[in-house]
Design a protein around this nucleic acid. Sequence first.
DNA 1: GTCTATATGGAGATAGAC
DNA 2: GTCTATCTCCATATAGAC
Lengths: 233, 233
Amino acid sequence: MKKKAVPDAGPPTRERILSAAEHLFATHGYDATSLRDIAIKAETRIGLVSYHFQNKELLYETLIERRSAEIGRRRLGLLTRERKSFLPAAIPAERIIHAYTWPFLELSHSAGAEWKSYTKIISSVANSQRWTGLLSTYYDPVATVFLNELRRTFPTCSEAKLVAGFTFMVSVMLGIAAETGRADQLSNGAIRSTDIGRIFDMMLPFLSAGFERLGDADDGMAVGGRGLAPSSE
Amino acid sequence: MKKKAVPDAGPPTRERILSAAEHLFATHGYDATSLRDIAIKAETRIGLVSYHFQNKELLYETLIERRSAEIGRRRLGLLTRERKSFLPAAIPAERIIHAYTWPFLELSHSAGAEWKSYTKIISSVANSQRWTGLLSTYYDPVATVFLNELRRTFPTCSEAKLVAGFTFMVSVMLGIAAETGRADQLSNGAIRSTDIGRIFDMMLPFLSAGFERLGDADDGMAVGGRGLAPSSE
DNA sequence: GTCTATATGGAGATAGAC
DNA sequence: GTCTATCTCCATATAGAC
């Protein structure tokens, strides 16, 4: 049970602020969340937010940073395990995709409300213009390791295709974690977007097949290619 | 050439406001864009914005709505063409994916700055909690038509898989239109995220293969499935 | 339809006592 | 580390003359 905000009971102020901010940012977005709201939810004062984090932007950056290491650690942990079981052969695409996407989606799904909020923040930040620099800073190092692994699995595949496939994978993963409920509506309830485990099970073969086809035909670019938009009207 | 904002030269005020708003919302997001900024960029006054659109939220909704019909029209146009060339057979997955994604990406890529802004707004709105209702309103009717077509192409595929695949496709498409530049950095320049045509050419076989594998094995769920995250610290 | 002027509130940030 | 008080600025929205 959470005690009242008696100064020396429960988590320290700094932690309470981070938790409150995480939840509010995930729900309303960066700009629509005020330091006032955060202070109130954290049962403290605005001054304390400034004291601990200087300003709103640094608070946000702190938030994004603080869980990124755990995600990276789990990703690399799974990748290392796969490397060991397949060496000296290359790791199958599906296992690489699994190692990259599962930690993120598992934490989103079953590690509590705070991780859920965190992954929603990352999802909504990803397609924005404003914070992509932050994502690169904290997520690109591990992404680079995974790209190297994909390169071993698809040695004849062009760099462009490899990286494109990787970003497709990331988009799908983030779309799942966003849990917008769009699929629920489109499927009349055959899918619930909160059922991340089940969606993951469909995502995995979907992305694996995509990568494998990219890695295949390094000559012809499949049938058709781009068409023209209807010129009428 | 754009004339000065002499009241009766150039586009009318209402249009200037929409253009200015579109550009600013795409660049800075909804909350970080003020009606002041919009009025200044449109070379008019705040009062005029209120006069034409009541309030900020309705302005945003108007913006999202106004280009959705054109996108839907092009999507259905391409789909109809495909239907005619394949009937009575089902349309191959790749052609359905093409018909859904290409209008959006083509408009993003080569229909001028305003369409580029519009598609970026849609991309950033998609993974947020706040505006998904709007997207459903304006985009679900056409999405439903495409789902019916996919159902014909993969008649033994479960509804859940079909809709999941559809949302994966949408996520990838929106990630491309967002043009965050993440791929540019990860590939050391082998891809430029602004080169949407080229990325589309890689996306198409990637998504087609994904759909086809989903449609395939309606029994076993591919190798492996979910694993456990490392429990060690 | 357009403009000026203003009402009203909330934002982020800081100073300084304790 | 915590709290109160306050500064300064900017937000959205509206009233009313022209």
